[in-house]
Design a protein around this nucleic acid. Structure first.
Length: 422
RNA sequence: GGAGAGGUGCCGGAGCGGCUGAACGGGGCGGCCUGCUAAGCCGUUGUAGGUCUUUGAUCUACCGAGGGUUCGAAUCCCUCCCUCUCCGCCA
C-alpha cells in the first residue's frame, strides 16, 4: 500500500506505475474523495472543538449549581451534526481505502519497462547444460517408472494436480527441505521459523494477497481462514504491528511450509507432472531491513537462493522481471529458472523480491533507528530458496541415466541415505 | 465446548461520567553530580490525521475492536476478538 500523502503528491507518477504494471486503479477518483473528505474534516473538527470547550463549561456551571439546560440543548444539535459528519467521513474513508489498497507498488527505476514476460532481461547464467547421449525423459516418466512419483494416487485422494510421492520420492522432499534449511540457517544467518499454514484475513491483507487474489486461495469458510500460498504470508506477518529496535535489523527468517494454490484459470498448457500443482513444498527466506540497504539485501537474497542450485549443481539463469511481469506488491524482482533436460525448458524455481515499504505499511511493521527517533517502516524482501517441485523436476531430468536411474546430487546423499535412486 | 479472571502508554500498574493523553513506579532520552561505574537530583519522553503565517504553532482522534447511552465516556450498557486459569474432548 502506498502512503496517502505520497499519492496526493505524485498522481502522475502513480498513474504511470499502474500502467506499467498492467493494473487498474482510479487514482483521480481517490484524489476527489480525499479532497472532499478533508473539507469535511475541517468542519467536523471545528464542531468537536466547540463541543469539548462547551462541555467543559457545562461541567463548571453544574458545579456552581447554575442552569445549563439551554446550552445542553444547543450542544445536542452540535453532537447530532458531528455524528452525521463522522458517518459521512467514515464512508469516504472506506471508499478511499478500497481504491488505495488496489494501487500496486511502484517499480524501481532499474526495472525494465515492458508489458509482459517477453521484456524480462536475462542477467546471469550459471552451469553447463547437461549433455546426454540418450534422449532424456520427462520427469513424470522417470518418476513413475521408479515408483517415486504417484500421480494417480494424488488425484485419487484429492484431485488433479495433487501429487503423491512414494519411497525415495517422499524422502527426496524431506532431504531437500533439510538441505535448504540447513544451508540458510548455518551459512546465510537466517533464523528458522515453523509458522502456521492457515492464516487469517489480516495476514493475507498484510502481505498483499488480499483483496486481489482471493479466488486463487483455498479458504476455510466457517472460520474465514486461508491456506497459505507461500510462507511469506505467515512469516512476514509475524512482525505485524510491531516497532523493532533499529539495532535488531536486519531480521532474517527462513521457513519450510507447504503452499496451497488454487491456480484458478491456469489449467491447460505446461501443467503436466510436477510443473504446476495445487500443493507444493517450499523453503522461503524473508528479510526485514533498513530501507537504506534494501537493494543490497535483495542481491544477497538472490545469492542465497542461487547457492542452493549451485550446490545441487543444477544449471540456471537469472532474470530481472519487467514491470508488466512484476507482482502487485513488488518493486523489483529476480526470477531464477532452472534447466530441465527432459522438458528442454527453463523453469521458475525462485522469485526474489523487494517490496520496499509496501507490505510494511499494510502490515504496520516499523523500526526505530534510535531509541528517541520516530518509527519508520522497514523494507521487506522475500525469496524462494527454493520451491521444491521444479527443483525435483530438474533433479529427476538432469541426473537421470540411460538405465532409468537417478544419481543423487552429492549434497543430498547424507539426507537420502543413498547415492542412487533405482 | 463449559466455568471463571482479565485486556490502559515502551513495561509494570492506578483511574468518584467532566481540569486524565492519562496518577505512581520502572525504562529510554537530555542535563547536573562523579576520577570511572553505581547511587542521587532535575527535566523530558506515544501514535495517527487535519489546518496554518509549514523545520514551528494549533486542532482532532486514539485507554483490545465495533456499536450504544450522555451536553460530555478509559470510566455506564451491548456485541465481538484475544490472553490466562480450571473442567471436558481430542492428535
Amino acid at each position: 500500500m502506498l502512503d496517502l500523502k505520497f499519492i496526493r503528491n505524485n498522481v502522475e507518477k502513480i498513474k504511470r506505475a499502474i500502467e506499467l504494471k498492467n493494473d487498474h486503479a482510479d487514482v483521480d477518483k481517490l484524489i476527489e474523495l480525499d479532497t472532499e473528505k478533508r473539507k469535511m474534516l475541517i468542519e467536523v473538527e471545528d464542531l468537536k472543538r466547540q463541543r469539548n470547550t462547551v462541555s467543559e463549561e457545562i461541567g463548571n456551571m453544574k458545579k456552581l449549581k447554575q442552569d445549563a439546560s439551554e446550552v445542553i440543548a444547543k450542544m445536542r444539535n452540535v453532537s447530532d451534526k458531528i455524528k452525521e459528519l463522522d458517518e459521512q467521513i467514515r464512508k469516504l474513508d472506506e471508499q478511499i481505502f478500497e481504491i488505495q489498497i488496489r494501487i500496486p507498488n511502484i517499480p524501481h527505476p532499474s526495472v525494465p519497462e515492458g508489458k509482459d514476460e517477453s521484456a524480462n532481461i536475462e542477467v546471469k547464467k550459471w552451469g553447463e547444460l547437461p549433455e546426454m547421449d540418450f534422449q532424456p525423459l520427462p520427469h513424470w516418466e522417470v518418476g513413475e517408472k521408479l515408483g517415486i512419483l504417484d500421480l494417480a494416487g494424488g488425484s485419487k485422494v484429492s484431485g488433479s494436480f495433487f501429487i503423491n510421492y512414494m519411497g525415495l520420492g517422499a524422502r527426496l522432499q524431506r532431504a531437500l527441505i533439510s538441505f535448504m534449511l540447513d544451508l540458510h540457517i548455518k551459512k546465510h544467518g537466517y533464523i528458522e521459523v515453523y509458522p502456521p499454514f492457515i492464516v487469517n484475513r489480516e495476514s493475507m491483507f498484510g502481505t498483499g494477497q488480499l483483496p486481489k487474489m482471493e479466488e486463487d486461495m483455498y479458504h476455510a469458510a466457517v472460520d474465514d481462514l486461508f491456506l497459505i500460498p507461500t510462507a511469506e504470508v505467515p512469516v512476514t506477518n509475524l512482525l505485524r504491528d510491531q516497532v523493532l529496535k533499529g539495532e535488531n535489523l536486519p531480521v532474517y527468517y527462513t521457513a519450510y511450509t507447504p503452499c496451497f494454490r488454487r491456480e484458478a484459470g491456469t489449467h491447460g498448457k505446461d501443467t503436466r507432472g510436477l510443473i504446476r500443482v495445487h500443493q507444493f513444498d517450499k523453503v522461503e527466506m524473508v528479510k526485514f531491513v533498513d530501507p537504506k540497504v534494501s537493494y543490497d539485501e535483495l542481491e544477497t537474497l538472490l545469492g542465497n537462493a542461487e547457492e542452493v542450485l549451485q550446490l545441487l549443481e543444477l544449471p540456471y539463469r537469472v532474470l530481472t522481471l519487467a514491470s508488466g511481469d512484476l507482482s502487485f506488491a513488488a518493486a523489483k524482482c529476480y526470477d531464477i529458472e532452472v534447466w530441465a533436460a527432459g522438458l528442454s525448458k527453463w523453469l521458475e524455481v525462485s522469485s526474489c523480491s523487494n517490496f520496499e515499504d509496501f507490505q510494511a505499511r499494510r502490515a504496520n511493521i516499523r523500526f526505530k533507528r534510535d531509541p528517541s527517533s520516530k518509527p519508520e517502516f522497514v523494507h521487506t524482501l522475500n525469496g524462494s530458496g527454493l520451491a521444491l517441485p521444479r527443483t525435483v523436476i530438474a533433479i529427476l531430468e538432469n541426473y537421470q541415466t540411460d538405465e532409468g536411474t537417478i544419481i543423487v546430487p552429492e549434497v543430498l546423499r547424507e539426507f537420502m541415505g543413498t547415492d542412487i535412486i533405482k
